[in-house]
Computed example of a mutant assay.
Amino acid sequence: MELPVMPPVRPMLAKSASAIPSGMQYEAKWDGFRAVVFRDGDAIEIASRTTKPLTRYFPEVARALLTQLPGRCVVDGEIVVVRDGRLDFDALLERIHPAASRVARLAELTPASFIAFDLLALGDESLMERPQSARREALTSALRDVSAPVHLTPATDDIEVARAWFEEFEGAGLDGVVAKPPGLPYRPGERVMTKVKHERTADCVLAGLRLHKSGPVVGSLLLGLHDSDGRLQHVGVCASFPMRRRKELMEELEPLRMADVHGHPWERWTDPDAQAGGRLPGGPSRWTGTKDLSWIPLRPERVCEVAYDHLQGDRFRHTTQFRRWRPDRDPADCTYAQLEETARYDLADVLGP
Results as ranks from 00 to 15, higher is better:
L3M: 11
P8D: 08
P8M: 08
R10Q: 14
L13T: 06
P21A: 13
G23N: 11
W30S: 15
D31W: 13
G32M: 15
R39S: 08
G41M: 08
D42N: 13
I44F: 06
E45D: 09
I46S: 09
I46Y: 08
F58Q: 02
R63K: 09
A64V: 04
P70I: 05
G77N: 06
E78S: 07
V80M: 11
D90M: 12
P98C: 12
P98T: 12
R102N: 11
I115Y: 12
A116Q: 14
L120T: 11
E129D: 15
T140S: 15
T140N: 10
A142T: 08
A142S: 06
R144F: 10
R144S: 15
P149L: 07
P149K: 11
L152Q: 10
I159F: 03
V161I: 09
R163H: 05
A172S: 07
A172L: 05
L184G: 00
L184W: 00
P185Y: 02
Y186P: 04
R187C: 03
V192F: 00
M193W: 05
V196E: 04
V196G: 03
H198W: 04
A202T: 00
C204S: 01
V217C: 09
V218F: 05
D229L: 14
S240R: 15
S240K: 15
M243Y: 10
L253H: 00
P255G: 09
L256I: 02
M258F: 07
A259W: 01
D260S: 11
W266E: 02
Q275V: 04
P281I: 00
G283A: 06
T288Q: 05
K291E: 04
L298D: 02
V303N: 01
C304T: 04
E305H: 02
A307G: 13
Q312V: 14
Q312Y: 02
D314M: 12
R323D: 05
R326H: 07
D330N: 15
P331R: 06
Y336T: 11
L339Y: 02
L339C: 06
L339T: 06
E340Q: 13
T342Q: 11
Y345R: 13
